[in-house]
Amino acid sequence: MVTVLTENGTKDVTGGTGTNGELWIPKSEAGSLTGWTLKPEGFCKGELCVAIPPDRESEFVRGDAVNVAAFWEKMGMPALHDEAGANWVLGQGAAHRSAALQSLEAPDFTLPDLDGNLHSLSDFRGKKVFLVAWASW
């Protein structure tokens, strides 16, 4: 089992194995983990598809498994793991985040308050928001 942190939270992938920068996930689980699904055209999210280089297919797909880390890095997004390959993070890339900010639409997020109740920035649409960060340290 491999634990994977994504923007959408922490998920245990039962069929995953990850070492040496490779994170092999069953095709059946890769889609729900990453939001990208393997199709004949490549890895697809909605209308957007990223083709797998024809001469490097074995780096990305082997049988029923997908190397999610290789795909992630190919997309320009960081995929990091601990020494044992049991814990991974699939981070967001610079280009994606920068494009989002340049639209000036405030990126949404959902976080808990002290009681564990979840709040999203988008809950406050219709009001001016002063978003301010602080820390105890």
Partner: peptide
Amino acid sequence: HYVAELYNMVNVNQAVWIDEAGII
């Protein structure tokens, strides 16, 4: 520090002003 990641915050207290339509 997810909000720091989203908004490129590097210190506290940092802030963002967002209007009623969700625009920075």
